[in-house]
Amino acid sequence: MSTAVLDKRPTGLPRVSQRYFPVLATLLLLVLMYLFGTFQYEGFASGQGVANLFIDNSYLIVVAVGMTFVILTGGIDLSVGAVVGLSTMVASTLLEDRGWSALLVIPVVLLIGCTLGGLMGAVIHYYEIQPFIVTLAGMFLARGLCYVISTDSQSITDGLYSDIALKTIPLGGGVVITYSVIVALAAVLVAYMVLHYTRLGRNVYAMGGSKQSAMLMGLPVARTTIAVYTISGFCAALGGILFSFYALSGSPNTAIGLELDAIAAVVIGGTLLIGGSGFVLGSVIGVLVLGLIQTIITFANLESYFTRITIGLLLFAFILLQRLVFARRSPGS
Protein backbone atom coordinates (compact mmCIF):
# COMPACT_ATOMS: atom_id res chain seq x y z
CA MET A 1 0.00 0.00 0.00
CA SER A 2 1.09 3.50 -0.71
CA THR A 3 1.51 4.45 2.93
CA ALA A 4 4.28 1.95 3.33
CA VAL A 5 6.57 4.45 1.69
CA LEU A 6 5.65 7.14 4.14
CA ASP A 7 5.20 5.26 7.33
CA LYS A 8 8.69 5.70 8.65
CA ARG A 9 8.90 6.00 12.34
CA PRO A 10 11.95 7.12 14.21
CA THR A 11 13.79 4.41 15.98
CA GLY A 12 15.14 4.66 19.52
CA LEU A 13 12.97 5.13 22.55
CA PRO A 14 9.47 3.74 22.28
CA ARG A 15 7.23 6.61 21.33
CA VAL A 16 4.89 6.49 24.28
CA SER A 17 7.57 6.82 26.84
CA GLN A 18 9.25 9.76 25.16
CA ARG A 19 6.43 12.13 25.96
CA TYR A 20 5.86 10.78 29.43
CA PHE A 21 9.46 9.94 30.18
CA PRO A 22 10.33 13.00 32.28
CA VAL A 23 7.13 12.69 34.33
CA LEU A 24 7.66 9.00 34.85
CA ALA A 25 11.23 9.65 35.92
CA THR A 26 10.00 12.14 38.49
CA LEU A 27 7.33 9.76 39.71
CA LEU A 28 9.93 7.04 40.08
CA LEU A 29 12.15 9.46 41.97
CA LEU A 30 9.28 10.31 44.30
CA VAL A 31 8.58 6.66 45.02
CA LEU A 32 12.25 5.87 45.58
CA MET A 33 12.62 8.82 47.91
CA TYR A 34 9.57 7.72 49.84
CA LEU A 35 10.83 4.15 50.12
CA PHE A 36 14.24 5.41 51.18
CA GLY A 37 12.64 7.50 53.93
CA THR A 38 10.43 4.64 55.02
CA PHE A 39 13.28 2.19 55.46
CA GLN A 40 15.75 4.70 56.79
CA TYR A 41 13.71 6.59 59.36
CA GLU A 42 11.26 5.36 61.93
CA GLY A 43 7.92 7.07 61.79
CA PHE A 44 8.53 8.35 58.29
CA ALA A 45 5.78 6.42 56.62
CA SER A 46 2.46 7.42 58.02
CA GLY A 47 -0.87 8.47 56.60
CA GLN A 48 -0.63 11.82 58.30
CA GLY A 49 2.91 12.22 56.99
CA VAL A 50 1.61 12.00 53.45
CA ALA A 51 -1.28 14.30 54.31
CA ASN A 52 1.14 16.81 55.79
CA LEU A 53 3.08 16.82 52.57
CA PHE A 54 -0.05 18.17 50.92
CA ILE A 55 -0.98 20.47 53.81
CA ASP A 56 2.45 22.09 53.96
CA ASN A 57 2.72 22.54 50.21
CA SER A 58 -0.83 23.35 49.19
CA TYR A 59 0.04 26.94 48.32
CA LEU A 60 3.08 25.86 46.31
CA ILE A 61 0.97 23.37 44.38
CA VAL A 62 -1.41 26.13 43.36
CA VAL A 63 1.40 28.49 42.36
CA ALA A 64 3.12 25.72 40.39
CA VAL A 65 -0.13 25.02 38.54
CA GLY A 66 -0.21 28.62 37.34
CA MET A 67 3.48 28.51 36.46
CA THR A 68 2.85 25.36 34.40
CA PHE A 69 0.52 27.28 32.10
CA VAL A 70 3.08 30.02 31.56
CA ILE A 71 6.00 27.68 30.98
CA LEU A 72 3.94 25.52 28.60
CA THR A 73 3.65 28.55 26.31
CA GLY A 74 7.41 29.00 26.52
CA GLY A 75 7.21 31.96 28.92
CA ILE A 76 8.19 32.45 32.53
CA ASP A 77 6.64 34.32 35.47
CA LEU A 78 9.04 35.68 38.07
CA SER A 79 6.36 37.69 39.86
CA VAL A 80 4.53 34.85 41.57
CA GLY A 81 6.45 34.97 44.86
CA ALA A 82 5.84 38.68 45.22
CA VAL A 83 2.17 38.27 44.29
CA VAL A 84 1.84 35.61 47.00
CA GLY A 85 3.39 38.09 49.44
CA LEU A 86 1.15 40.91 48.27
CA SER A 87 -1.92 38.71 48.64
CA THR A 88 -1.13 37.90 52.26
CA MET A 89 -0.58 41.60 52.94
CA VAL A 90 -3.79 42.73 51.27
CA ALA A 91 -5.75 40.00 53.01
CA SER A 92 -4.39 40.70 56.49
CA THR A 93 -4.75 44.47 56.14
CA LEU A 94 -8.27 44.39 54.79
CA LEU A 95 -9.37 41.83 57.36
CA GLU A 96 -7.75 43.34 60.42
CA ASP A 97 -7.36 47.08 59.78
CA ARG A 98 -10.40 47.63 57.65
CA GLY A 99 -12.56 44.93 59.18
CA TRP A 100 -13.77 43.63 55.83
CA SER A 101 -15.48 40.30 55.64
CA ALA A 102 -13.39 37.36 54.49
CA LEU A 103 -16.02 36.68 51.84
CA LEU A 104 -15.24 40.03 50.29
CA VAL A 105 -11.49 39.99 50.90
CA ILE A 106 -10.84 36.75 49.03
CA PRO A 107 -12.43 37.85 45.73
CA VAL A 108 -10.62 41.19 45.96
CA VAL A 109 -7.26 39.47 46.42
CA LEU A 110 -7.94 37.12 43.51
CA LEU A 111 -8.96 40.06 41.34
CA ILE A 112 -5.70 41.88 42.11
CA GLY A 113 -3.72 38.81 41.10
CA CYS A 114 -5.63 38.42 37.83
CA THR A 115 -5.25 42.10 36.99
CA LEU A 116 -1.49 42.11 37.56
CA GLY A 117 -1.07 38.94 35.52
CA GLY A 118 -3.29 40.15 32.71
CA LEU A 119 -1.40 43.43 32.44
CA MET A 120 1.93 41.63 32.28
CA GLY A 121 0.60 39.30 29.60
CA ALA A 122 -0.65 42.24 27.55
CA VAL A 123 2.70 44.02 27.75
CA ILE A 124 4.53 40.83 26.81
CA HIS A 125 2.37 40.28 23.77
CA TYR A 126 1.73 43.73 22.43
CA TYR A 127 5.15 45.25 23.07
CA GLU A 128 7.06 42.02 22.39
CA ILE A 129 9.20 42.36 25.51
CA GLN A 130 10.75 39.24 27.02
CA PRO A 131 8.50 37.66 29.67
CA PHE A 132 11.50 37.43 31.94
CA ILE A 133 11.95 41.17 32.17
CA VAL A 134 8.26 42.09 32.25
CA THR A 135 7.52 39.73 35.11
CA LEU A 136 10.65 40.98 36.84
CA ALA A 137 9.10 44.45 36.80
CA GLY A 138 5.88 42.86 38.05
CA MET A 139 7.83 41.25 40.86
CA PHE A 140 9.33 44.60 41.88
CA LEU A 141 5.91 46.21 41.70
CA ALA A 142 4.13 43.60 43.80
CA ARG A 143 6.88 43.39 46.38
CA GLY A 144 7.11 47.18 46.56
CA LEU A 145 3.36 47.36 47.15
CA CYS A 146 3.79 44.89 50.02
CA TYR A 147 6.14 47.26 51.78
CA VAL A 148 4.01 50.28 50.97
CA ILE A 149 1.12 48.60 52.73
CA SER A 150 3.22 47.83 55.76
CA THR A 151 6.70 46.76 56.70
CA ASP A 152 5.47 44.69 59.61
CA SER A 153 3.72 41.41 59.60
CA GLN A 154 0.24 41.24 60.97
CA SER A 155 -1.57 38.32 62.50
CA ILE A 156 -4.97 37.43 61.17
CA THR A 157 -7.62 36.96 63.85
CA ASP A 158 -10.74 37.24 61.75
CA GLY A 159 -13.17 34.57 62.89
CA LEU A 160 -14.37 33.18 59.60
CA TYR A 161 -10.89 33.26 58.11
CA SER A 162 -9.25 31.38 60.95
CA ASP A 163 -12.15 28.95 60.98
CA ILE A 164 -11.46 28.02 57.39
CA ALA A 165 -7.76 27.96 58.05
CA LEU A 166 -7.78 25.76 61.10
CA LYS A 167 -10.64 23.41 60.42
CA THR A 168 -9.52 19.93 59.49
CA ILE A 169 -11.29 17.25 57.57
CA PRO A 170 -10.85 13.71 58.85
CA LEU A 171 -10.09 11.15 56.17
CA GLY A 172 -10.39 8.20 58.53
CA GLY A 173 -7.63 6.40 60.37
CA GLY A 174 -6.82 9.58 62.26
CA VAL A 175 -5.52 11.25 59.12
CA VAL A 176 -6.71 14.80 58.60
CA ILE A 177 -6.31 17.39 55.89
CA THR A 178 -7.16 21.08 55.68
CA TYR A 179 -9.46 22.95 53.35
CA SER A 180 -6.36 24.31 51.66
CA VAL A 181 -5.57 20.83 50.40
CA ILE A 182 -9.06 20.57 48.91
CA VAL A 183 -8.62 23.96 47.24
CA ALA A 184 -5.20 22.99 45.87
CA LEU A 185 -6.44 19.67 44.50
CA ALA A 186 -9.45 21.41 42.99
CA ALA A 187 -7.11 23.87 41.28
CA VAL A 188 -5.12 20.97 39.87
CA LEU A 189 -8.26 19.28 38.60
CA VAL A 190 -9.58 22.45 36.98
CA ALA A 191 -6.19 23.13 35.42
CA TYR A 192 -6.08 19.60 34.06
CA MET A 193 -9.55 19.99 32.54
CA VAL A 194 -8.68 23.36 31.03
CA LEU A 195 -5.41 22.12 29.55
CA HIS A 196 -6.81 18.95 28.06
CA TYR A 197 -10.47 19.64 27.32
CA THR A 198 -10.69 23.25 26.21
CA ARG A 199 -9.47 25.09 23.17
CA LEU A 200 -7.61 27.51 25.42
CA GLY A 201 -5.64 24.63 26.87
CA ARG A 202 -4.74 23.20 23.48
CA ASN A 203 -3.77 26.66 22.24
CA VAL A 204 -1.38 26.87 25.19
CA TYR A 205 0.36 23.71 24.00
CA ALA A 206 0.28 24.83 20.38
CA MET A 207 1.92 28.15 21.23
CA GLY A 208 4.62 26.41 23.18
CA GLY A 209 5.24 24.10 20.24
CA SER A 210 5.62 26.89 17.73
CA LYS A 211 4.29 30.38 18.14
CA GLN A 212 4.80 31.06 14.44
CA SER A 213 2.73 28.03 13.44
CA ALA A 214 0.07 28.87 15.97
CA MET A 215 -0.24 32.27 14.37
CA LEU A 216 -0.38 30.89 10.82
CA MET A 217 -3.02 28.37 11.86
CA GLY A 218 -5.14 31.29 12.96
CA LEU A 219 -5.03 30.61 16.70
CA PRO A 220 -5.67 33.54 19.04
CA VAL A 221 -2.10 34.08 20.21
CA ALA A 222 -2.76 37.41 21.93
CA ARG A 223 -5.69 36.08 23.90
CA THR A 224 -3.79 32.98 24.90
CA THR A 225 -0.73 34.89 26.10
CA ILE A 226 -2.81 37.24 28.21
CA ALA A 227 -4.83 34.31 29.52
CA VAL A 228 -1.85 32.30 30.76
CA TYR A 229 -0.36 35.21 32.68
CA THR A 230 -3.79 36.00 34.10
CA ILE A 231 -4.11 32.40 35.19
CA SER A 232 -0.65 32.53 36.75
CA GLY A 233 -1.56 35.75 38.56
CA PHE A 234 -4.79 34.17 39.77
CA CYS A 235 -2.98 31.07 41.01
CA ALA A 236 -0.37 33.19 42.77
CA ALA A 237 -3.11 35.17 44.51
CA LEU A 238 -4.92 31.96 45.45
CA GLY A 239 -1.61 30.57 46.67
CA GLY A 240 -1.25 33.72 48.75
CA ILE A 241 -4.63 33.14 50.35
CA LEU A 242 -3.71 29.54 51.12
CA PHE A 243 -0.43 30.75 52.55
CA SER A 244 -2.27 33.20 54.80
CA PHE A 245 -4.47 30.30 55.94
CA TYR A 246 -1.31 28.37 56.68
CA ALA A 247 0.52 31.16 58.52
CA LEU A 248 -2.56 33.10 59.71
CA SER A 249 -0.65 36.27 59.13
CA GLY A 250 0.40 38.60 56.39
CA SER A 251 3.99 39.62 56.00
CA PRO A 252 5.75 41.68 53.34
CA ASN A 253 8.60 39.18 53.35
CA THR A 254 6.37 36.23 52.60
CA ALA A 255 7.44 33.89 49.83
CA ILE A 256 10.64 35.65 48.73
CA GLY A 257 12.18 33.32 46.20
CA LEU A 258 9.03 31.23 45.88
CA GLU A 259 9.14 31.73 42.11
CA LEU A 260 12.30 29.63 42.07
CA ASP A 261 10.60 26.78 43.92
CA ALA A 262 7.66 26.97 41.55
CA ILE A 263 9.88 26.94 38.47
CA ALA A 264 11.95 24.09 39.93
CA ALA A 265 8.80 22.09 40.66
CA VAL A 266 7.51 22.57 37.13
CA VAL A 267 10.82 21.60 35.55
CA ILE A 268 11.36 18.63 37.81
CA GLY A 269 7.76 17.68 37.02
CA GLY A 270 8.78 17.19 33.41
CA THR A 271 7.61 20.35 31.69
CA LEU A 272 9.97 21.58 29.00
CA LEU A 273 11.24 25.08 29.68
CA ILE A 274 11.02 25.90 25.98
CA GLY A 275 7.34 25.09 26.19
CA GLY A 276 4.94 22.81 24.42
CA SER A 277 5.36 19.69 26.51
CA GLY A 278 4.45 18.85 30.06
CA PHE A 279 1.62 18.04 32.40
CA VAL A 280 0.09 19.84 35.32
CA LEU A 281 0.09 16.57 37.26
CA GLY A 282 3.84 16.45 36.71
CA SER A 283 4.14 19.80 38.43
CA VAL A 284 2.22 18.44 41.41
CA ILE A 285 4.64 15.53 41.57
CA GLY A 286 7.45 18.07 41.32
CA VAL A 287 6.10 19.96 44.34
CA LEU A 288 5.78 16.70 46.27
CA VAL A 289 9.40 15.85 45.44
CA LEU A 290 10.48 19.22 46.82
CA GLY A 291 8.33 18.66 49.91
CA LEU A 292 9.70 15.17 50.40
CA ILE A 293 13.27 16.47 50.18
CA GLN A 294 12.40 18.83 53.00
CA THR A 295 10.89 16.01 55.04
CA ILE A 296 13.82 13.68 54.54
CA ILE A 297 16.27 16.41 55.45
CA THR A 298 14.32 17.07 58.62
CA PHE A 299 14.30 13.36 59.47
CA ALA A 300 17.98 13.08 58.70
CA ASN A 301 18.64 15.95 61.07
CA LEU A 302 20.40 17.76 58.29
CA GLU A 303 20.45 21.52 58.12
CA SER A 304 17.66 23.05 56.07
CA TYR A 305 20.08 24.49 53.54
CA PHE A 306 20.66 21.07 52.08
CA THR A 307 17.15 21.39 50.73
CA ARG A 308 18.21 24.18 48.38
CA ILE A 309 21.35 22.38 47.32
CA THR A 310 19.41 19.22 46.59
CA ILE A 311 16.79 21.16 44.64
CA GLY A 312 19.56 22.79 42.63
CA LEU A 313 21.11 19.43 41.84
CA LEU A 314 17.77 17.97 40.83
CA LEU A 315 17.08 20.98 38.66
CA PHE A 316 20.43 20.44 36.98
CA ALA A 317 19.76 16.75 36.47
CA PHE A 318 16.35 17.35 34.95
CA ILE A 319 17.47 20.16 32.66
CA LEU A 320 20.22 17.88 31.42
CA LEU A 321 17.68 15.09 31.00
CA GLN A 322 15.49 17.42 28.94
CA ARG A 323 18.39 18.21 26.66
CA LEU A 324 19.21 14.55 26.17
CA VAL A 325 15.68 13.24 25.67
CA PHE A 326 14.51 16.12 23.51
CA ALA A 327 17.77 16.81 21.74
CA ARG A 328 16.22 15.91 18.42
CA ARG A 329 13.31 18.25 18.77
CA SER A 330 14.38 21.75 17.90
CA PRO A 331 12.55 24.50 19.73
CA GLY A 332 9.90 26.07 17.54
CA SER A 333 10.86 29.53 16.48
Binding site: R199, R202, N203, Y205, S210
Partner: peptide
Amino acid sequence: VYQEVNLCTNLSVAENIFIGREPRRMGAI
Protein backbone atom coordinates in the same frame (compact mmCIF):
# COMPACT_ATOMS: atom_id res chain seq x y z
CA VAL B 1 0.91 24.51 3.04
CA TYR B 2 4.36 25.98 3.44
CA GLN B 3 7.71 24.40 2.81
CA GLU B 4 8.70 24.46 6.46
CA VAL B 5 5.60 22.67 7.71
CA ASN B 6 3.78 25.21 9.83
CA LEU B 7 2.24 22.83 12.30
CA CYS B 8 2.92 22.19 15.96
CA THR B 9 4.96 19.02 16.05
CA ASN B 10 4.48 18.63 19.80
CA LEU B 11 0.75 18.06 19.32
CA SER B 12 -0.91 14.90 18.08
CA VAL B 13 -1.69 14.38 14.41
CA ALA B 14 -5.41 14.71 15.11
CA GLU B 15 -4.97 17.97 16.97
CA ASN B 16 -2.88 19.43 14.21
CA ILE B 17 -5.74 18.88 11.83
CA PHE B 18 -8.34 20.30 14.15
CA ILE B 19 -6.68 22.81 16.43
CA GLY B 20 -8.69 25.98 16.70
CA ARG B 21 -11.85 24.14 15.58
CA GLU B 22 -11.87 21.06 17.76
CA PRO B 23 -15.19 19.20 17.93
CA ARG B 24 -16.72 19.79 21.34
CA ARG B 25 -19.45 18.21 23.39
CA MET B 26 -20.91 20.22 26.26
CA GLY B 27 -18.04 22.66 26.07
CA ALA B 28 -15.32 20.06 26.38
CA ILE B 29 -13.15 18.84 23.55
